[in-house]
């Protein structure tokens, strides 16, 4: 077993175990912490693929940004003694069924696909290239999606301000 395979197995195990713990934990802050481990391990997988940029984005946005926001809102709203109620049987069985069917479908599809062995070495993606394609509009250019997302983000920001603003009446 090479070290790459070992790390891949380690990260995958962490992702699988903590994903399950995230949805089964009855304490909401613990669930958020487990989610953090899942996201950090995903970043680890990206590092393994030498896609450092995406890994750093994953760490900043998801682990450092979104999870911190989730934890922050939990801090503001819930008390330490609170435990989420366990779901009733009526909810449990359909949920389990859907999850199992989804998992089975994915596994069947993945197993049927014949993955060709990787022949190309992983190469480091240059940040300069990513930056250039984000603002170019020719081939491999992402200027339009980039701008659309910016407008969406601006709309969300304005919406948040409007919602949070005190009404005068």
């Amino acid at each position: 077993m090479t070290s790459n395979q070992f790390m891949f197995l380690l990260f995958s195990a962490v992702i699988v175990i903590f994903s399950i713990l995230t949805v089964t934990s009855r304490r909401i802050l613990r669930a958020a912490t487990f989610l953090l481990f899942v996201l950090v391990s995903t970043a680890g997988l990206y590092f393994l693929l030498k896609y450092n940029y995406l890994a750093a984005i994953q760490l900043t946005l998801y682990a450092g940004g979104i999870v911190v926001l989730i934890i922050f809102s939990i801090l503001l709203t819930s008390h330490i003694s609170e435990k989420l109620p366990t779901a009733g049987l009526l909810k449990k069985w359909p949920a389990a069924l859907v999850a199992l069917v989804g998992a089975a479908l994915c596994i069947v599809v993945i197993l049927q696909y014949n993955f060709p062995g990787s022949v190309v070495d992983t190469e480091v993606v240059n940040v300069r290239d990513i930056g250039n394609s984000l603002i170019s509009y020719g081939e491999k250019g992402y200027a339009l999606p980039f701008e659309v997302i910016s407008v969406l983000l601006l709309a969300a920001l304005i919406g948040a301000i409007v919602l949070a603003k005190k009404r005068k009446d």
Binding site: T33, L36, V40, N52, Y53, A56, I57, L59, T60, A63, G64, G65, V67, V68, I71, V127
Partner: peptide
């Protein structure tokens, strides 16, 4: 991406 990596991981400490 050294500088960006450092920014990314230091933001984990707050958790």
């Amino acid at each position: 991406i050294g500088i960006m990596y450092v920014i990314a991981v230091t933001s984990l400490g707050v958790v």
